[in-house]
Amino acid sequence: MARADGPRTANGPRTGGGPRADGPGTGDEGPVGGSGRRFAPWLPGVLIVGGVAFDLSTPPPYTAAPFLAAAPLIAAPLHPLRLTALAGALAVAAACLLAEFHGVRDWAQSATEIATVVTVALLALLINRIVRRGSKRLASARGIAEAAQRAVLPVPPARLAGLDVAARYVAAERDAAIGGDLYAVQDTPHGVRMVIGDVRGKGLGSVEVVAIVIGAFREAAEQEATLEGLTLRLERALQRERARRADIEQAEGFITAVLAEIPRGDSQLRMINRGHPAPLLLDGEGAVRQADPEVPALPLGMGDLGAWPDRVEELPFAEGVTLLLFTDGVSEARDAQGTFYDPAVRLRGRRFAGPVELLDALVADVERHTGGGTADDMALLALRRAPVAPGVDRGR
């Protein structure tokens, strides 16, 4: 794109006529925020229009070729093939029309600029195909991960044997659906039983351990008459799988966990804590009680270090009280100054309509505390003994 008074350069001086700071740079920052995401799809058109305006309003040593070449490149990851091709065609047409408008004297310079825009437009089409293929694979992988999460950590029913129930799983990795945290709640002949735990370890190995524990819990919760027997079954399942499968690392076989049961028709809560963060009991008036175990115990999977009887803690669980169980992704979340999140303190004095509202508020509060992200996965489970009208049966 050379004007009649001489050739133009793509890297001319920036004094007075160069690209402004609020030009292309804005598009780079835009996708970070909500307004930026809305603006990003329009960026290819803005670059073409802005490039033409830049070309017409600046001295001859400046060229719009960088703007025009950037337009299809920006369109490639944002738009389908057809719109990317349209952006490339408009950029090439604008380059040709500008060269014609200014009157071409240096054909070699103008041809080079036009050829550059054409080449970049063709590369943008190739990039678009690669990005779209990768997006389809990623969508497929996400679908598989979501299906695996639903199979391993299914969403519990909102109402279970007279209890209001809610669960959440918040992965630390943005695109991950499941990690090393686990929860399960199940109505059994012995009452409503539940488990929440955190596998020591990361990666696929921890997910395998989660599947082993959940599978063992589903079966043993129905069969074992006592909570101690249920805990022992999980311990044996971990030891058996570790002995059978060499790919399960020793560190990934250890799980901090809380197992609990609420017998039907009973106002007691029974718990066994195996080295896990203490659950919380919240009443309807905003009071919070931390259910610390009387005697600390080693995590599940560490039975090789010694054998000792599990101690069941019994606590009152009246109507209107909510049991909150969570993994250390909540209690070890830190703010910018390194201060740990304390759910007992942060929830004290607050009232919630039900378990769903409690978990929604808690997840949002942790995100505010950390500034938008956590370094570890979070699993949360909340159950409330809902008040019932006189004469209403509490059956299944």
Score class of each variant (00 low, 15 high):
residue 237 A to E: 13
residue 202 K to Q: 03
residue 278 A to Y: 01
residue 277 P to R: 00
residue 226 T to E: 13
residue 207 V to F: 14
residue 278 A to N: 00
residue 296 P to K: 08
residue 269 L to G: 04
residue 280 L to T: 00
residue 213 V to M: 07
residue 227 L to V: 04
residue 308 W to I: 03
residue 305 L to A: 11
residue 307 A to D: 05
residue 216 A to V: 07
residue 274 R to W: 03
residue 290 Q to E: 14
residue 215 G to T: 09
residue 223 Q to I: 02
residue 248 I to E: 01
residue 314 E to P: 04
residue 246 A to I: 06
residue 206 S to R: 12
residue 207 V to Y: 09
residue 230 L to F: 11
residue 261 E to R: 15
residue 208 E to G: 10
residue 248 I to Y: 01
residue 277 P to A: 05
residue 220 A to E: 03
residue 263 P to A: 13
residue 221 A to R: 00
residue 297 A to V: 03
residue 238 L to T: 04
residue 295 V to E: 12
residue 305 L to Q: 11
residue 221 A to F: 10
residue 208 E to H: 13
residue 210 V to H: 09
residue 216 A to L: 15
residue 243 A to Q: 10
residue 307 A to R: 12
residue 210 V to G: 04
residue 233 R to L: 07
residue 231 T to Q: 10
residue 305 L to Y: 11
residue 221 A to V: 01
residue 220 A to T: 02
residue 219 E to D: 14
residue 271 M to V: 14
residue 280 L to Y: 01
residue 205 G to S: 10
residue 219 E to P: 04
residue 270 R to M: 08
residue 253 G to A: 15
residue 267 S to C: 10
residue 304 D to N: 10
residue 279 P to N: 02
residue 284 G to A: 12
residue 312 V to G: 06
residue 263 P to W: 14
residue 237 A to D: 10
residue 233 R to D: 07
residue 279 P to L: 03
residue 267 S to L: 08
residue 205 G to M: 09
residue 309 P to V: 03
residue 219 E to G: 05
residue 219 E to A: 14
residue 201 G to D: 11
residue 314 E to A: 12
residue 297 A to Y: 10
residue 265 G to N: 13
residue 273 N to W: 00
residue 302 M to N: 01
residue 225 A to W: 05
residue 203 G to K: 12
residue 230 L to K: 05
residue 276 H to K: 01
residue 260 A to T: 03
residue 245 R to Y: 11
residue 311 R to F: 13
residue 233 R to N: 09
residue 300 L to I: 00
residue 203 G to Y: 08
residue 265 G to A: 06
residue 281 L to C: 00
residue 201 G to C: 08
residue 292 D to A: 09
residue 295 V to H: 12
residue 211 A to H: 13
residue 313 E to H: 09
residue 236 R to F: 15
residue 283 D to N: 14
residue 222 E to P: 02
residue 315 L to Y: 11
residue 205 G to N: 12
residue 293 P to E: 02
residue 283 D to K: 10
residue 225 A to S: 06
residue 232 L to C: 14
residue 304 D to K: 06
residue 299 P to Q: 13
residue 204 L to W: 12
residue 228 E to P: 07
residue 212 I to Q: 04
residue 220 A to W: 09
residue 255 I to T: 07
residue 231 T to I: 07
residue 227 L to E: 00
